[in-house]
Simulated scan of single mutants.
Amino acid sequence: MASHEIPNVLRRTDPVGSPAPLVLDSPHTGLLFPPDFRPSIPMAQCERVADWYVEELFGAGPEHGAILIEALFRRAYIDPNRSERDLDLSMVESGWPDPVDTTEKTARGASLVWKVIDGETAIYDRPLTIDEVRHRIATYWRPYHEALKAALDETFERFGTVFHIDCHSMPEFGDARWGDGGERRADFIVGTRDGTTASPAFTELVVESLRASGYSVAVNEKFKGVELIRRYSNPSAGRESLQIEVNRGIYMDEAAIRRSERFGATKAAITRMIAAVAAHARSIAG
C-alpha cells in the first residue's frame, strides 16, 4: 500500500492492486495544531474537536481500489471543507483584500477559520492578522484541495467517471444549533446537497448497503454536504460526490474519546459499502 505525505498537511494512500474509479477523503480527522495557532482558551478544549477515527473506519478503501486522502491538521485551525471565501471578517484585522462569501457556517462560528469551539467559546482574544490567515490557506487549505482535485482528475481521466465519498463523523445526539437538540441522530447521514452532487443510483447504493448491515440511514437531514462535494461534483459529466456522516455512538465513547466495542462491526459495514461502491464504479466505467 503506497502512501505519499506532505508532512503535517496531508496523507494520500493509493490503491492496492487494481484501481477503481473511487476517491475517499477525510478532511476533519487531523490532530495537528500548528505552532502559530495560539488560542486564548486551554488547548485541551480545542483538542476535543475532530472527526475521531474516521480515517480508520474508511481505511479499507485502498484495498478495494480507492484513493484515500486524509488531512493531518485540525479543522478548527483551518477547515478544508469550507470555501476560501467563507471567512468571518470580525475575527480578522481590517483590510482583508480578497472576496468574501459568508454562509450559515459563518454565523455558527465554524467558517474557514473557526471562531468558536462547541458553538459558543471564543478561541481567540485578538484579531488574526491578514498574513496569518493567508498562511493557513496557502500552507494547509490549498494543498489539501490540490491533492483531492488531482486524485479526482486523474481517476476521471483514467476511467471516464469518478465516484467521491467525503467522510465525516457527527455527535450521537443533536443540539439546538442544528434544530435537533437532544434527539438521537441516525446511524449514518448521507448528504448530496439535495440531490445536486450525486445520482439517485449512487445515493441509493450507499444507503441500501448500510441499511443491509442493520443501520439506520437518513439522507440530506441536517448534514447535506459542504464545500468538498459542492466544489468537485458534476453528476451529469460523470463526477459524483456525496458526504457520509457516521454517528459516533455506533463506534466510540465520545466522552472518553476511545473506540467502543461496536467499532469493529461499524468498520466492517463501511468496508462492505466501499466494496459495493467500488464494484458499481467499475461497472459504470466498463
Rank of each mutant, 00 (worst) to 15 (best):
A60H: 11
Y124Q: 10
T13V: 09
G264Y: 13
A20M: 10
V219W: 02
I244S: 05
P7H: 14
L228P: 01
S3I: 02
I41E: 00
V246Y: 06
S83A: 12
A71W: 00
W141G: 10
H4R: 12
A256N: 09
T271K: 08
H164T: 09
I67M: 09
A71R: 01
D166I: 04
H145L: 01
R12D: 07
W52A: 10
P34F: 08
D98K: 09
E172G: 01
M170K: 08
F173V: 12
H4C: 04
D98T: 04
R248I: 04
E146N: 15
S216N: 07
I274S: 06
Y215M: 01
G264L: 08
P62C: 06
R134E: 13
A150R: 10
H145G: 02
P21G: 15
I137L: 12
V207W: 11
E146C: 11
T161Y: 13
A107P: 06
L112N: 10
D88A: 06
G182E: 03
E146D: 15
K222T: 14
K115C: 09
V226T: 11
L24H: 13
E172M: 10
Y215Q: 02
D14Y: 07
D98S: 09
N234I: 03
G181F: 10
S40R: 14
E146F: 15
H168Y: 03
A201Q: 12
R136C: 06
S40H: 12
A276N: 08
A138T: 14
G119Q: 05
T129E: 02
T197N: 00
T103A: 08
L57T: 02
A60D: 08
S260E: 01
G195K: 14
